[in-house]
């Protein structure tokens, strides 16, 4: 029976997390989804600063705010704080 047990050299080093969390999508947690209105947006860059999930990104090439729905948990902080009222929360999956 002892033969089936692994020695200390064979087991993985304890507690080393080796996969990036970006492979674990948290986007399906959300009930409400933020919709960005590019017309109203003044690009003040407040929302990427206060998103807990780094799900609001600044696209450097076309200078636009982009939402990453793979990670957005739909908390609604961005919509609540937006000074230009350019973000609206809508129910995921439509009405």
């Amino acid at each position: 029976m002892n033969k089936t047990l692994k020695g200390w050299k064979d087991i993985p080093i304890a507690g080393v997390c080796w996969k990036p969390a970006t492979q674990y999508l948290t986007g399906d947690w959300k009930t409400f989804k933020p919709i960005h209105d590019a017309e109203k947006c003044t690009k003040c860059l407040l929302c990427p600063m206060i998103c807990p999930d780094s799900a609001i990104k600044w696209n450097q090439t076309n200078e636009e705010i982009e939402f990453d729905y793979d990670f957005c948990k739909g908390c609604g902080i961005c919509a609540n704080e937006c000074p230009a009222d350019a973000i609206k929360m809508v129910r995921e999956g439509g009405e």
């Binding site: 990036p20 969390a21 970006t22 492979q23 674990y24 999508l25 948290t26 947690w29 959300k30 003040c44 860059l45 407040l46 990427p48 600063m49 807990p52 999930d53 780094s54 799900a55 990104k57 600044w58 450097q60 990453d68 793979d70 990670f71 948990k73 739909g74 908390c75 609604g76 902080i77």
Partner: peptide, 23 residues
């Protein structure tokens, strides 16, 4: 400046499992 900060790489990335709206 806000631009300098948003262009800086995230060292604490997305995909962590904090509650929605975590302070």
């Amino acid at each position: 400046t806000a631009k300098e900060i948003v262009e800086k790489a995230e060292l604490f990335t997305s995909g962590h499992r904090a509650c929605a709206g975590c302070g």
